[in-house]
Design a protein around this nucleic acid. Sequence first.
DNA 1: CTAGTTGCAAATGCTTTGCACAGGA
DNA 2: TCCTGTGCAAAGCATTTGCAACTAG
Lengths: 149, 149
Amino acid sequence: MHKKYEMNFDTFLKNFKKHVSKLKLKNSIQKDYILKILYFSQQHLTAEEITYKIRETYNVDIGIATVYRAMKFFEELKIVSCLDGLENSKLYELNLSLHHDHLICTSCHKIIEFTDNVIEEKQINIAKNNNFILKDHVMTIYGICEDCQ
Amino acid sequence: MHKKYEMNFDTFLKNFKKHVSKLKLKNSIQKDYILKILYFSQQHLTAEEITYKIRETYNVDIGIATVYRAMKFFEELKIVSCLDGLENSKLYELNLSLHHDHLICTSCHKIIEFTDNVIEEKQINIAKNNNFILKDHVMTIYGICEDCQ
DNA sequence: CTAGTTGCAAATGCTTTGCACAGGA
DNA sequence: TCCTGTGCAAAGCATTTGCAACTAG
């Protein structure tokens, strides 16, 4: 089973295309495939994994440069977010659910998502107290998961 | 003025050397210089900046590979910690003061440190609730500082 | 039609590694 | 002395970029 999103893929894709054309930007088949892979993937993926999975799953040849360019495009539109994984890996995920943070197992690299309203509020306070206009934040907890202990 | 630490540099270095020799590891002049630069630096530094500053300040030639190797060494001993800065930069800082998190200005790249006990406690809870053995965490808030607004 | 996108391959930039030599313990 | 650390240069690896061909709008 893949993650449960409130929107099914076709609706999501349709909305995305509408959004893109409103901004007078261009879409492409390649971007559609990337979104599809991200949507149906349970995990956070690297650019290489995305490329490989598209080739495997849909039998479509796609260059990794295209994936990197698309990730930039999606990040600017806030559709995708990027997470620093272990060992300098960059992991991408679709931004469909609410903001969440991550718990990463340093042994098996499993990632668990969590949300904490107290932490979210505290961040707003901290930014305010330092006269910062809050843009974004990253909170990652590293530890060893139950299975690996 | 540099950061105020509870320990002066000579005491810190003496303790470090004692610690290293207890573990039957070797120290070197290069490592001394690296620690000195980190101790007296106000900012978080990249490997390149450390190399450059040692050459500039102490007129000592040091290879960047040595700096990277030393950072690994220090990180294993928990003497130095590494922070992901903007644009994929890795910033190093001495681990002398208490644990703290960072507020980074996306415009001028200024870094402000903060500590928040509520967040620290929450993290412990989150790890516990997910049956993780907590090892470490990273919390970084991105925003625009007062000067840049 | 035409600007933006693609795939490829080459370039980039940061980090690591192999090796001969130097220097701590 | 002996073993580890150092500096250099080369290798490695993820990401970006230049370019010619292609394609969405």
